[in-house]
Nucleic acid binder design. Structure first.
Lengths: 255, 255
DNA sequence: GTGAACCATGACGCGACGTGAGGGTCAAGG
DNA sequence: CCTTGACCCTCACGTCGCGTCATGGTTCAC
C-alpha cells in the first residue's frame, strides 16, 4: 500500500530520475498515482513492472520490444522469469565461448604463434545476442555455398571449439526437452526463443542459416535416422517436437 | 601483406560498412592505406586493432574509452587479453548471481510467497559490470552506515542466500589458497583478480566496500583471531597472504 | 559499353537517455 | 513567518553509436 516518490524509486532500482521520467513519457512505466502537487507516486505494482523492464533491458531488449513483451496478456509473471532465465543461461554459454577463445589465443601467443586477424574474427566475431544474418548468403538449402562455408570454418576449429559447440548444443537441446516435458506449445514464446537460439548457434559455428534453410534442416531431423536418433535419445518425441517448433516459428519474418 | 576493402572487412568482422566509416571518422580505426580511387584499404594490422575495438565494445566500453585504452603505449596485446578475460569472468559471476536470483524468485512464487519489489531490487539491482558504488556511502571503515546497510540487507536473506554466499566465498578462498600454494606473488595479476572478486562479493552481499574499507577488513583478518582461524583452517599462512594481497592491490586506483 | 556491385562523402534521423533552465513543494530550523 | 535546502515538475536541447538515404564515382564481368 506504500507509495514511493520518484527519487526513492531511482535509488531502489539503481537508475536515474531522468530514466523514470523517460519511461513515463513513453508510457512504459507510468506511475499509478500523483500527489496534490503533481508528484509522481509509484505503487508496489509499479515497482514490479519497473523491475521487469529493467530485467529485460539488461538482457539487451529495446524499450519498444520490452513494451511489446509486457503487453502480452497471455504471458504471466513466471513466463517472464523463465524466459529471462533461459536468456541468462544463453549469455553464460556465450560468455564462456568468448572466454575459451581468449584463453586459446593467449596460449597461442605464449607459444609464439600469432593468429591471423581473420582467424581471430572467426572465433571472436560472434555478436552477443542472436547472431548476424548475412543477407547475401544463398537462400536455398543444400546450397554449395553453405557447405563450403561450413567446411572453411570448421577446418580451423580445435578440440576446445568442438567441446564448446557441443555444450552449447546440449544446452539448447535440454531447453527443448524441458519445454516438451512442461507441455509448452510449439507456437509459444519459449519455443520461439529456443528455435532462434538454435538457428543462431548454427549460424555462428557453421554457416549463415536462413529461416528457409532452418526449415530444411528441421525436415532432416525427422527424416534422417541419424539425426532422429540423437533427439530421441534425449527424450521420446523430441525430434518431432523440435521439427514442429522450428516450422511454427520460421513462417513469418518475426523480429 | 594483404589489403582488404571496407566491404570485406565488414563481412569478416560481422559489422557494417557504416560502422567502419564511423570508426574512421572518429579516428578509432583508421585504414592504413587508400587506393588510387580513394578506396579505404585495411591491412592485417588494422584488422587486429579493429578486433580489439570490437572486443572492448562487446564488454560495454564506450568508443571514447576504447580509444583511451588502446592509446596506452604501456599496454601490450596480452595485457588487453588478460583484462578482457578478467571482465568476462566478472560477467560470468554477475550473470550467475542473476540466475540464482531468478531461480529463487521462481521457487518463492511456486510456494505462493510473493517477494516485495524492494526485496527484488535488493537482489536484482546490482548492475552488470562491477556493481555501482554508492558515492553517498560514507568512506571510513567502522562507519555506522556500513553496518546498518549490511544489517538491512542480510535481514532479508534466506537460507538459500546464505548457501550461495558461502559457496561464492569458498570459491574465492580456494582461489587464494591455490595462488598461495603455486607461489603466486601477492602483486601478480591472479591475486589482483581474486582481491577484486573478494571486494565485489562483499559489496554485493553486505555493503558497498571501498578499497579503504577493504584494507581495513584485511587488517582484521590478521588481528581478529576469529577471522584468522577460518583462513588458517584452509591453509597455513593464508590469513597473512590474503591480507598482503588486499593491501598490495588496493593502493592505486586501477579501474 | 553497360549493368551490377562495389566504393566515396555528406547529411539527416533515432533511441535512450544526460544535462541544464526555470520554476513549484515540503519539512526543518532560526 | 520566512528562509534554506532537498526534493519535485516540465520543457528543451545535447550526446553517442550508429542506420539510412541521397548523390555520385569506380571496377569488373559479360
Amino acid at each position: 500500500m506504500e507509495e514511493h516518490t520518484i527519487g526513492e524509486v531511482a535509488r531502489l532500482s539503481h537508475t536515474s530520475v531522468r530514466t523514470l521520467h523517460h519511461y513515463d513519457a513513453i508510457e512504459l512505466v507510468v506511475p499509478s498515482g500523483r500527489s496534490a502537487a503533481g508528484y509522481r507516486l509509484y505503487s508496489a505494482e509499479d515497482l514490479g513492472r519497473l523491475r521487469q523492464v529493467l530485467s529485460y533491458r539488461e538482457l539487451g531488449f529495446s524499450l519498444e520490444e520490452i513494451a511489446e513483451i509486457l503487453a502480452d496478456p497471455d504471458a504471466r509473471a513466471d513466463d517472464h522469469l523463465r524466459r529471462q532465465h533461459r536468456m541468462l543461461r544463453d549469455r553464460q554459454v556465450q560468455t564462456q565461448a568468448l572466454l575459451s577463445a581468449i584463453e586459446k589465443e593467449m596460449e597461442a601467443r605464449q607459444m609464439g604463434i600469432a593468429l591471423t586477424p581473420a582467424e581471430q574474427f572467426e572465433i571472436f566475431g560472434t555478436d552477443s545476442l542472436g547472431g548476424a544474418y548475412s543477407e547475401e548468403a544463398e537462400q536455398r538449402w543444400g546450397d554449395t555455398e553453405s557447405w563450403a562455408q561450413s567446411r572453411r570454418r570448421t577446418a580451423a576449429y580445435t578440440k576446445e571449439h568442438w567441446t564448446a559447440i557441443k555444450s552449447e548444443a546440449d544446452a539448447n537441446l535440454a531447453g527443448f526437452a524441458d519445454a516438451l516435458s512442461f507441455g509448452e506449445s510449439t507456437t509459444g514464446p519459449v519455443t520461439a526463443f529456443l528455435v532462434e537460439a538454435h538457428r543462431s548457434q548454427i549460424s555462428r559455428w557453421f554457416y549463415d542459416c536462413s529461416p528457409e534453410m532452418h526449415r530444411g534442416l528441421a525436415e532432416l531431423y525427422v527424416t534422417d535416422p541419424r539425426f532422429t536418433a540423437t533427439f530421441e535419445d534425449v527424450a521420446p518425441g523430441l525430434a518431432q517436437y523440435v521439427h514442429d517448433a522450428i516450422c511454427a516459428n520460421t513462417g513469418n519474418a518475426e523480429r
